[in-house]
């Protein structure tokens, strides 16, 4: 540690490099383990926000979708502060947009039927 680094740290302007190493590692390992590069993660983040926004109004500035790792288990963590729920008509429209306009009873059970086969 140089004197300059030491003063920087005293003034709280710079984290110790060991702490930086840990933070950088945690980030890079989350990507390594999930095989997602930052570009793909960004695309996924945008799509998740898009879907969520159909249902609730969220604060995009504050929103965050990231990969976190603990005990070798990587999790996709989304923290999306909700401003308010969308009014009901908008929700129906949103449901229609993802092909769920019909009540999901008859169609769904038909699709599920083959998997009930005892074989």
């Amino acid at each position: 540690m140089t004197l300059f680094d030491f003063i920087q740290r005293l003034l709280g302007r710079q984290k110790p490099s060991g702490t930086m190493a840990k933070e950088r590692l945690q980030l890079v390992l989350a990507h390594d383990r999930s095989d997602l590069n930052p570009e793909l993660l960004e695309q996924m983040r945008r799509e998740i926000l898009e879907v969520v926004q159909r249902y609730v109004e969220i604060d995009i500035e504050e929103g965050d979708v990231s990969l976190e790792t603990e005990d070798r288990v990587t999790a996709l963590v989304a923290n999306l502060p909700i401003k308010r729920a969308r009014p009901l008509p908008a929700l129906v429209a949103a449901a229609a947009a993802v092909g769920m306009a019909q009540p999901p009873d008859a169609d769904a059970s038909e699709e599920l039927a083959p998997t009930d086969d005892p074989d």
Partner: peptide
């Protein structure tokens, strides 16, 4: 010495990360 001054990944840091 470097670990004590946090200028190196600590023992717990490494075991936490690699589990």
């Amino acid at each position: 010495k470097m670990m004590a001054s946090q200028e190196m990944l600590g023992v717990d840091d490494v075991t936490d990360i690699l589990a």
